[in-house]
Design a protein around this nucleic acid. Structure first.
Lengths: 144, 144
DNA sequence: CTGGATGCAAAGGTTTTGCACGCTA
DNA sequence: TAGCGTGCAAAACCTTTGCATCCAG
């Protein structure tokens, strides 16, 4: 009925390597970074293939595609749902360890919308940028 | 000290029109939509100018730049902070009327990050897409 | 074998930028 | 008048696609 019959599940070296490499890291690499990682194993793999496989793997729920505000796509080898923090300086993305408060209970009134859910992103300054910062004159440039 | 001396505050017809037109609408237009709106007043205004001014206005806090997950930039003529809902079908963006629960109190533990804040986006199906939907076989395709 | 997957390269969509000229302050 | 802002066009970026070929099942 739905278009969920997913014929595209053929196992290839490319797909395998992409998944394995992505799961090795705890960072949340961009497609291009995944491409660089995969190239170390398959030198002539193409960027297009990386995109196609990342898309497919995320459709199958094996990885997670992160579309964070104002940045390119990033991919997460851990498929379970969790929140992320991104650094406003260097854009790196990390997992949030725990959240106090109850974001799960947020309910919303939104002019006739059938609200399906929400997405929360945290932002701040990562440890390494905090260090660099003490000694220089940079200032936040966030506009929520 | 900081680079916040903002010399770029010269008043021009382009900037004025962009702000006025953006404030006229309650939608959350993309840069290109703002461009189309502005062109009705200044036929030969350029897209580049629109981008530059939108950026500037948002830096000055006169408008708000929305960088929603997985979509192009949108702009909001209302500068105060409020949440948004976007339609998973047609991508339109509306204001959230009210939020129950207490997202403001969310606190987070995030490996050494200095957490500055968070961003919440709601998503769902807008009224007009709900109508279209009753009679057809489309299904959600959200991967959070 | 068959048709999904690949590599390559071109195209697409969005945003930024370089440059010479124009206009605000 | 000085130099920020503009229009135009090219470039930069990121992602998707067309196509001939390859290879997993």
């Amino acid at each position: 009925m739905t278009e969920n019959m997913n014929k595209n599940t053929r196992q290839t070296r490319q797909k395998r390597v992409i998944l394995v490499e992505l799961r090795k890291v705890t960072s949340h690499p961009t497609a291009d970074e995944v491409y660089q990682m995969a190239r170390k194993k398959i030198p002539n793999i193409s960027l297009g293939t990386v995109y196609r496989n990342l898309e497919q793997l995320s459709e199958q729920g094996k990885i997670r595609k992160l579309e964070l505000a104002g940045s390119q796509m990033r991919f997460d080898g851990r498929a379970y749902s969790h929140h992320h923090v991104s650094c406003v300086r260097c854009s790196r993305v990390d997992d949030v360890i725990s959240v106090r408060g109850n974001p799960g209970s947020i309910d919303v009134e939104a002019g006739g919308y059938q609200v399906l859910g929400h997405r929360i992103e945290f932002y701040g300054v990562c440890p390494s940028c905090q260090k660099k910062e003490s000694a220089d004159e940079r200032s936040p440039r966030m506009h929520l």
